[in-house]
Amino acid sequence: MKKVSISFTLNGDKVTAEVPPSWTLLKTLREYFELTGPKEGCGTGECGACTVIVDGKAVNSCIFPIPEVEGKSVTTIEGIASKDGTLHPLQKAFIENNGVQCGFCTSGMIMSAKALLDHNPDPTEDEIRTGIAGNLCRCTGYVQIVASIEKAGELIRQKK
């Protein structure tokens, strides 16, 4: 299988992947970089478990062709804590507010929430629900997830 060389920034580091051009960003993250935080749920952009941030925007990595990340900046759940291990406010808030049940949707939920809070640290409940409308939680723990995101917004606003 023909391979191409794709260079981009992954969680702050300059990286190059040598993968077939038909691979998706998700497949590359999981199988080339062994970052298994982003999950494959549906594989068709419906469930949001694969959500990562590309140049500041939340996208479904399962339908994102790998050649399209050339030169771009990709952030996954593995890249949001500080280098010293301090958790991101969203991670803290999800733990404290029981925003995690089975955990399969969690990394996608947090990445959608991060894309939202990065632009708007004080969202309304409606804006939060719109921000995570593309992330399915089949444990149906949405109330705690929304509360976690509200709490994370609070933590982020306090820090500023």
Binding site: T51, A58, N60, S112, T130, G134
Partner: peptide, 9 residues
């Protein structure tokens, strides 16, 4: 349309 993730692309 779809979700934020879909609308972004």
């Amino acid at each position: 349309v779809g979700s934020v993730q879909i609308r972004n692309v």
